[in-house]
Write a protein that binds this DNA or RNA. Structure first.
Lengths: 287, 287
DNA sequence: GCAAAAGTGTTCTTCGTACACCCATGA
DNA sequence: TCATGGGTGTACGAAGAACACTTTTGC
């Protein structure tokens, strides 16, 4: 079978940058290439677009085929169209990124050569995928200003410090614990997870029927609108380049604790508010 | 001549959304289509990508050919790849947007069917270009948070209210004049245009050799770092949809003064700071 | 003269930020 | 017992937001 056109056409492919979070570091899902070019090198899942699917559908399909991952939401990073980015023929790649939870992945690791890499351990990638990864990181950092991102990356319940570590991993900054918690709760996007909620009621309710006023921090302030939320320290951020996230700087290597959060109140996202923020892009997050 | 491939390939095109500002309204540059499909309809300048150029180069070239405009900076909006977006064959379009100054355009209107449309007057467009325009507007509104945008859209010298009108046109909000000026000057990105600077010295210097302290507003505060800059009223913004900018809402139609700025101190951008902000994306603008 | 725009400061309130001590857990 | 992390509140300063009157200009 062959296909003939009056003018030359490039091939069009879709590639997919999948981010995960193991509670400590940001990770990326890669595939080991089994064929030339770049045989043996690592690359993003992806492949050529069919004529009856959009680029997004293609990315979704390839991801499913190559990693067994079923991802609902893909965000387009853009088209990469440098003339010689593929040695075989002219290929324009449309790249996407996706966020997945650790729990969604553990089951389906049937894929032969799919593997998670911590961002700092990512080897040199095939094609222009290093470049694409950089773009994806940039984009993730930009998006986090306007959209809460944790819901897709964390398990349903998480501690405040897990959430904080996620933000720190993505932005490459460290926040003051108390301020982080304060501002995160101010948004009203978080609620105590059920168990803890029950626990909380147990402690608070036996004597008084109303929620103990001393725990007002634990409950999202329903009355007030969420308002702006700005985090952390400008100075720290300014001096931190995106390279830090790739391990080429050692700024982030120093504070590397051994174990992940021991105990702590569990939170979950208020789905309604979360979706609202996602849709309206009115969640703000400043370093 | 014909080109044959083992697998089907889509055609790849680049389209270009060019924004301009006439001092009052945001405008878009459109081309009347001379051929089917959509003959007679308006569309963005654009065309098919050659094998020896990137999508960006293609957009640049097509823009030059169709409108005689030479645009340095194109920003990619993304790829549009819906299966049936072009009735002829499968076409993936990579869209860009550009900002140009009125003064850069007046000269070269050799292009037959190129025309500026105020955003509210844009007719229904060919292909999925309506959709692309919406994306472009969204993107422009997002970008304006992180990058000063005026330099590319305003003439070298402009009054504070021209700048304000530009921001209002893009964001679909109205700002308090005094607060807008205050915060804009705080950034240090503006300076008095030369004539006015001279005028200012004339008035201030004859008696005292030092700049008159009463005019401190007129000079960017060089000492302090720019810091964050947030504008306007949250409430107004919240209730204003992007539709307002397309004229489907009448919120913006009411306050429509007849004439453009009469007189006022002229400002220009401090090129150095401007480029710095552009590069580092550390300019912030909040409604 | 009249309508529209330009020029100009202050006050109140909100929010960001910095910061320290005690307790619980697990090694 | 020691190290790590969790839990909690306050005080200061910066910045946003609201706001009115006078002068100038163009018609």
């Amino acid at each position: 079978m062959s296909y003939t056109y009056q003018y030359p056409h490039p091939a069009v492919a879709a590639d997919c940058v999948v981010f995960g979070f193991d509670g400590r570091e940001l990770q990326v899902l890669l595939i080991e290439r089994g064929l030339d070019p770049f045989k043996g090198a690592w690359a993003f899942p992806g492949g050529f677009m069919r004529m009856d699917e959009s680029a997004e559908e293609c990315a979704q399909r390839e991801l499913r085929e190559e990693t067994t991952l079923n991802v609902q939401v893909l965000k387009q990073l853009g088209a990469f169209s440098a003339v010689h980015r593929d040695p075989r023929e002219r290929v324009v790649s449309i790249a996407f990124y996706a966020l997945v939870r650790p729990s969604d992945v553990t089951g389906g690791d049937d894929a032969n050569q799919a593997r998670w890499f911590a961002l700092r351990d990512v080897p040199q990638l095939a094609f222009d995928h290093d470049f694409i990864l950089r773009k994806a990181m940039q984009r993730l950092r930009e998006d986090i200003y306007f959209e809460p991102v944790g819901f897709e990356l964390l398990d349903r319940e998480f501690t405040m410090s897990e959430l904080q570590r996620l933000y720190e991993a993505i932005l490459g900054v460290r926040f003051d614990r108390r301020n982080f918690e304060k501002k995160m709760l101010q948004t009203g996007i978080l609620q105590l997870a059920e168990e803890d909620e029950a626990d909380f009621m147990d402690r608070a309710a036996p004597l008084a029927c109303e929620p103990a006023p001393t725990y007002s921090l634990s409950k999202p302030q329903q009355g007030k609108p969420a308002g702006k939320v700005f985090f952390g320290s400008k100075r720290e951020m300014k001096t931190m380049s995106i390279d830090a996230l790739f391990g080429s700087s050692d700024r982030l290597s120093e504070p590397q604790p051994k174990k992940v959060g021991r105990k702590g109140r569990k939170f979950s996202f208020n789905k309604e508010k979360y979706d609202h923020f996602k849709q309206n892009n009115n969640f703000r997050f400043e370093f």
